[in-house]
Design a binder for these strands. Sequence first.
DNA 1: TTGACATGCAGGTTATTACCTGCCTATTCT
DNA 2: AGAATAGGCAGGTAATAACCTGCATGTCAA
Lengths: 107, 107
Amino acid sequence: MKEIDKVFKALADPSRRELIDRLHAKNGQTLSELCAGLDMARQSVTQHLGLLEEANLISVQWQGRDKLHYFNPVPIHEIYERWIRKFERQRLDALHDFKTKLEGKLR
Amino acid sequence: MKEIDKVFKALADPSRRELIDRLHAKNGQTLSELCAGLDMARQSVTQHLGLLEEANLISVQWQGRDKLHYFNPVPIHEIYERWIRKFERQRLDALHDFKTKLEGKLR
DNA sequence: TTGACATGCAGGTTATTACCTGCCTATTCT
DNA sequence: AGAATAGGCAGGTAATAACCTGCATGTCAA
């Protein structure tokens, strides 16, 4: 499976995006910390975090019995650069055309 | 299911991203046109297109017996605005910090 | 009008996903 | 040392996803 596929797949699940959001708000959280309030068994969270790690969206670091999780924004940036940006450009072009046409009608 | 969830789910599959890419390259293609070269039964493609339509990533228009497909960049833009942009910002900040520290060391 | 073509609809299969529970290990704290 | 805490590992289940085939319908063109 290609890297970019893993990232898209990882982002497909709302719980995983929620986890990323939480790490973005506070980096370096432990598993238990991330579990708190997530209405889901610890094992499920572990699994989600595993997928995120597979996609290189987070990295982990052990500290005694604690497993610390860190968010890595690089894959998201790559998705943006390699896949999303071109559509943004098209969209802006469309807006530009629209505005131009509008100005034509108003003239 | 929330709108944004549908979009992320729709983008999770490589075949569906491929379809979007093709429509981006040439808008208004028929189903048969999109099937060509996709090593997949027509019905599967129909299903993928259905999901993309559900996510509002494409819209269709009938013309006689032909079903024309058009790409809509808006949902992708929304994903970018509401979800990706903040991570881009963090990333740029990180780069900036890095550069600043580096300059500190070089001084 | 008949044949060729574009697509829809129904249903079935297999793989994957998102969960769970139960039990085990390692670390910390008292 | 013993209890509490953080996490791993194995396995099981139910829902969903990604495919397929077969047949029906509607449209175009000779």
